[in-house]
């Protein structure tokens, strides 16, 4: 299982690196928000509030659409070819998810680095803890995205996921903290798991590690990871996928 995962991870990573243009655009996109929206936000809030929001937005957008890759593989028949090899079904999923995780780490590191240049100041421990949290969240979302892509009509996947991600980003408070929202919207946003993770992230960037908010964010992430990986594995296991 570990060997298969490693083989598929390396293969997928190489395939991702081959798409240089895609990588560059993926890395530049969040920087636009930082450079062109950040300075406005900085007049009312801090970089330590904004950057975690952009990280969550980035994490949701890029890993939420991860399933798109498997749609192509399904269409070309490559997925079925892999499925007749003895490779573990979990490896077929994890090999992909790990590739998405590595991509996300690179994007987040770049975002934080540019954020630092613009005025972000966060303790290293907080940054690392935050990165770990986001990577687990992103990897889980990628797993879920693959499961959805394999279950749903392929034509519908891109529009449906693209649309579903937007309210999740907005409700997490990625752009403006939900404390600024009217009561009903604030209440509604608690339904989104990502709000809890984002608030934990902001605390971590602020140097507060052992608070209730952080514990809640970690707990939500762990639960989300367990659910997503279970669903993902089940779908990859199922004979018809």
């Amino acid at each position: 299982m570990v060997r298969d995962t490693w083989l598929l991870f390396r293969h997928n990573l190489r395939a991702t690196l081959r798409q240089k243009a895609g990588l560059i655009f993926g890395a530049i996109q969040p920087l636009f928000f930082l450079v062109l929206f950040g300075p406005i936000f900085a007049t009312i809030g801090s970089w330590e509030t904004l950057v975690p929001g952009l990280i969550i937005q980035l994490g949701l957008m890029s890993t939420g659409m991860a399933g798109f890759g498997v749609v192509f593989e399904k269409r070309s028949g490559a997925l079925e070819r892999l499925r007749v090899t003895p490779a573990s079904r979990l490896a077929l999923l994890l090999g992909r998810v790990l590739t998405n995780a590595v991509q996300l780490i690179l994007q987040v590191v770049l975002l934080v680095a540019v954020g630092y240049a613009l005025g972000l100041r966060a303790p290293v421990a907080g940054l690392l803890a935050g990165l770990a949290l986001v990577v687990v969240l992103g990897a889980s979302l990628a797993a879920l995205s693959y499961a959805i892509a394999l279950t749903m009509n392929e034509q519908l996947f891109a529009p449906v996921m693209g649309t579903a991600v937007i309210p999740l980003v907005l409700l997490s408070g990625a752009f403006l903290p939900m404390s600024m929202a009217p009561g009903w919207l604030d209440a509604l946003s608690y339904v989104s798991p990502f709000r809890h993770v984002l608030e934990a992230l902001r605390e971590l960037f602020g140097g507060h590690y052992f608070t209730g908010t952080v514990v809640a964010g970690v707990a939500v992430t762990v639960v989300f990871a367990v659910i997503s990986l279970t669903v993902g594995t089940r779908v990859f296991n199922r004979a018809s996928a």
Binding site: H11, R14, R81, L82
Partner: peptide, 15 residues
């Protein structure tokens, strides 16, 4: 089941 963008030596090796 040939992937359009992967060099086939590489893909066969993985397989």
């Amino acid at each position: 089941g040939v992937s359009p963008s992967v060099p086939l030596g590489e893909e066969l090796h993985l397989q």
